[in-house]
Design a protein around this nucleic acid. Structure first.
Lengths: 213, 213
DNA sequence: CCCGTGTTAGACCACCGGTCTAAACTACCG
DNA sequence: CGGTAGTTTAGACCGGTGGTCTAACACGGG
């Protein structure tokens, strides 16, 4: 995190570097991205890169943060989730998820970046750098679930950590599956609805099981 | 796949190599495992290793196959899933999942191996070597889902690929969460029941949603 | 002019997975 | 027993990686 220096660079040079890194990370993922290729594309030396960034993870974190920032700027903030009843909660989730998906489809490089993220997320050194981002998103999801519980849209009979884990797991499965599909834009709302409904079934209240607990 | 040669080695030397590789892969995952450390631990030269195995992935595939073989030997084969009704299907799944989890808890190294597997599964070169194993397990899950659909235990209104993706996602989330918990062995059945119930809610038939489609 | 500070270039390091060749070992055959 | 063909081993070597370090450069102020 030596980025104060980086901010003092001329903007177009910042953009050159960030763009080169984004290209490389999006194309090859975190681990297979090559710093040598990045500096070659950006036209800077290795010394300069390490003058502005701590290491590879730091660079990735910066690029990812920039990408995510642009994304959420387009999507807008998440509306309050506990303003209505359970149905409202889930329709807000569905709507927001749809907008997020559309934004991601419009920014395929950012989407590729995030895909590579989950692929490398187990790397401990990688976690250290992106920890802030993940710590920012994990309570985010915890808060959403808590809001859901407040309006009776999310079950409260299981540990929070389990609900979070399953939500993340389903979310990742959805993302992977969505990315593998061709984007039939007109069919997307129905698909998203089905996906969110699956999540609702899993983490919503009410039993689907016929077997006695 | 040069392993015919490997089979001709004295058994204890095979074990030495496989054990060294298992230790390394379990400790560091696929990508961060070092062949140099493996050959140092096993006391062989790099030339020898590459005389018996094509490359890193090949070695991993062999070790993983051995580990999985031992695991399923302990757990036994999956009972037929389409012999009864929907409740039977899900109770068989639950029972088998419980046994698998217990076996994994008894073989933490194999568990670590599998964890590292899913982490590196996106690596294309890695896929090539473990392709046989994955191709053996992926239709496995597809067949299980198909059997569930036959007895009305699994919904049929969504694409198979989506059901598979979500099942895998929930499964991985369960695994991750289970691994993060201390193994209270007596509470495990209830936990597994809750997890399988979540899966059943998501991919089972019947609507949990109150919102109109 | 000179100096100090901020910046850059790129040689260098240890390590990686993988290749290759020459030596060593083994086994068979005359 | 000697020679030889085939198998196995050792480890130097290759291009690449992320990361370090130092010497040079640019440049503003006294």
């Amino acid at each position: 995190m030596v980025r104060p220096r980086f901010a003092k660079l001329p903007v177009h040079q910042q953009q050159t570097i960030v763009q080169a890194a984004l290209d490389e990370f999006a194309a090859h993922g975190f681990r297979d991205a090559s710093l040598n290729r990045i500096i070659e594309t950006a036209g800077i030396s290795k010394g300069s890169l390490y003058y502005y960034f701590d290491d590879k993870s730091d660079l990735f974190a910066y690029v990812a943060q920039a990408g995510l920032g642009g994304l959420f700027e387009k999507v807008g903030p998440l509306p309050p989730l506990d303003a209505g009843d359970a149905d409202t909660f889930w329709s807000v989730v569905e709507d927001y998820y749809l907008r997020l998906t559309r934004a991601l489809q419009a920014s395929p490089q950012v989407a590729a970046l995030l895909r590579g993220w989950s692929a490398a997320a187990k790397d401990p050194e990688f976690q250290r750098a992106t920890g802030e981002l993940e710590e920012a998103s994990l309570p985010w999801i915890a808060q959403a679930l808590a809001a859901g519980q407040r309006v009776g849209a999310v079950r409260a009979d299981l540990p929070d950590s389990l609900l979070i884990a399953v939500t993340l797991g389903i979310g990742e499965a959805m993302d992977v599956w969505l990315l593998a599909q061709e984007p039939h834009d007109d069919a997307l709302p129905d698909v998203i609805a089905a996906l969110v409904d699956m999540l609702r079934r899993a983490v919503g209240p009410g039993a689907a099981s016929g077997a006695p607990g």
